[in-house]
Amino acid sequence: MTEDQSVTEAATLRRIRRWIVIFIVCLVLSGLTAFPLEAETRWLAGLVDGSPIAEHFPAAATWVERVREGVADTNVRYPFLAYGTDWLAFAHLVIAIAFWGPYRDPVRNVWVIRWAMTACAAIIPLALICGPLRGIPLAWRFVDMSFGVIGVIPLLIVLRGIQRVERAEAARRSAQALAA
């Protein structure tokens, strides 16, 4: 391997790891926001109330207020249901930990990236099937689906980088075999 190839491969690995860190941070933030739902929905409702959003999109403002009321009422009457969102938060944090493998050795752990891309794709049918069953407005289902669409972008960048590193490693092994 030439020095230029070594530098390029090292730069590719740095870029891969940078995108993995971004993905991990987003998973952690997404998980942590599942804990304080009542405070967050109260904050969002306060933000929307009296804003141009409420004026131009009254259905969205009504939905936000309904969600705020539902979360608050549920927490008063059935606080144990919030335990489900605690587990959702925990799952995000555990999934973030799974990316430690690809961070350390992207080529060996490429399966985690492919699995995550599959999970991003699976968000779309989940939102389309379960959203109507739970009375979620179509616009909000598109917001939910956007997590899968946006989430797959860094994963595609990582996968392409891993494939570059794999090709470089294969070329290096081939050259070593020919030299032997």
Rank of each mutant, 00 (worst) to 15 (best):
T2F: 04
T2H: 09
D4E: 13
V7A: 10
E9W: 01
A11S: 07
L13V: 13
I20H: 02
I20M: 01
V21I: 14
V21F: 09
F23K: 01
C26I: 14
S30I: 03
L32K: 05
F35K: 02
P36H: 10
L37I: 02
A39K: 07
G46R: 04
G46E: 08
L47T: 11
P52N: 06
P52T: 03
A54Q: 04
H56W: 12
P58M: 01
A60T: 14
W63E: 08
R66C: 05
V71S: 06
P79D: 07
F80S: 09
L81K: 03
A82Y: 10
T85N: 14
A89Y: 01
A89F: 00
F90V: 09
A91S: 11
P102Q: 02
Y103C: 04
R104C: 06
D105L: 05
R108G: 07
N109L: 02
V110G: 12
W111G: 11
R114H: 12
W115S: 15
A116C: 05
M117C: 01
T118W: 13
A119C: 14
C120D: 10
A121W: 05
I123N: 08
P125A: 05
L128G: 08
I129Y: 07
C130G: 09
G131L: 06
P137G: 02
P137S: 00
A139Y: 14
W140H: 03
R141P: 02
V143S: 06
F147R: 07
G148R: 09
I150K: 01
V152Y: 07
I153D: 00
L156G: 15
R160K: 11
R160N: 13
R164F: 10
R164H: 12
R167L: 09
R167E: 10
E169I: 01
A171M: 12
R173F: 02
S174Y: 07
A177K: 12
A180D: 13
